[in-house]
């Protein structure tokens, strides 16, 4: 069964005479229970895809289906209970004047769900946050703890799909490992579907079996991670992205420079 199906998703930003096409006919499918990766460099539009699916942008064109049902542009409460999102910067995604308790109770109140206390206790345990942190403000938490709160907030409505926008890129590696483990555990237990955006191919490789490589608003290819790491990707860009992530290599840098000069910015073809 397909959890997320995106077809010909396009979005344009800017005024009439200064338009930029940020997404150009993006299509991919994510199976239920899968962790699907979106990689690309800055400006590739990977985060924009997430925001369209989440419902934060409303002026996209194309088709987005969730569990087979097409969704409209407007954000509905039903969609909120199905899809939630975790943002990149744990310092900017929590309200500075709300305690953990207030942050987690708000969605329950909005959706008229009772049993607030028990639900919060449960979700804090799920993300591995000590109960005594429950009445702290964000500035009293470490980066890793904040990101756990952000994950808890996304989980508290018990969605079936989690959109993860660079969830660990602002964290130290040891904290990143903890947060990635939490995400894996939750998925194993609840059977959630993840759509994971990252610029770090190692993180994508750790979490995902399949991924889409994006460049300048286009999907270059959808590829199995095993193929990508085995050097069997179709597109030159995908292979180069993988190699560049792997290690520093003087000759590779020369190749990139040469490709940039020839291709005028983008790298095309096999």
């Amino acid at each position: 069964m397909t959890a997320i199906s995106v077809k010909n998703l396009s979005i344009v930003f800017g005024e009439e005479d200064n338009e930029t096409k940020v997404l150009d006919a993006v299509s991919f499918d994510v199976e239920k229970g899968e962790v699907f990766g979106l990689v690309g460099e800055s400006g590739s539009g990977k985060s924009t895809v997430l925001r369209c699916i989440a419902g934060l942008y409303t002026h996209w064109t194309g088709e987005i289906r969730i569990d087979g049902q097409p969704v409209g542009a407007q954000l509905t409460k039903e969609r909120c209970r199905k899809i939630q999102m975790v943002f990149q910067d744990p310092y900017g995604s929590l309200h500075p004047k709300h305690t953990v308790q207030t942050t987690l109770a708000a969605p329950l109140r909005i959706h008229g769900i009772g049993d607030i206390d028990r639900r919060i206790t449960e979700v804090l345990r799920d993300v591995g946050l000590a109960p005594h942190l429950r009445f702290r403000y964000p500035h009293q938490l470490s980066g890793g703890q904040r990101q756990r709160v952000a994950i808890a907030r996304a989980l508290i409505l018990r969605p079936s799909i989690l959109l993860l926008d660079e969830p660990t890129s602002a964290l130290d590696v040891s904290v990143q490992a903890e947060v990635l483990n939490v995400l894996s555990d939750i998925r194993d237990r609840e059977g959630l579907t993840y759509l994971l955006v990252s610029h770090d191919l190692a993180v994508i490789g750790h979490m995902c079996r399949r991924l889409a490589v994006m460049q300048q608003g286009l999907i270059e290819e959808v590829v199995d991670y095993a193929d990508l790491s085995g050097g069997r990707a179709q597109q030159a860009y995908s292979r180069m992205l993988f190699d560049a992530s792997h290690h520093y290599d003087r000759s590779m840098a020369n190749d990139i420079t040469a490709a940039r000069q020839a291709g005028g910015g983008t790298i095309h073809g096999a």
């Binding site: 509905t76 909120c80 209970r81 309200h95 709300h98 909005i110 952000a150």
Partner: peptide, 26 residues
């Protein structure tokens, strides 16, 4: 344009709730 307002919208919070609950306190 901050992420915590985006998160509030994703929870289904109405504009009124966002203005009074999240923006005015700041």
């Amino acid at each position: 344009s901050s992420d915590y307002i985006a998160a509030a919208r994703l929870q289904g919070a109405s504009s009124l709730r966002i203005i009074f609950g999240s923006i005015i306190p700041v």
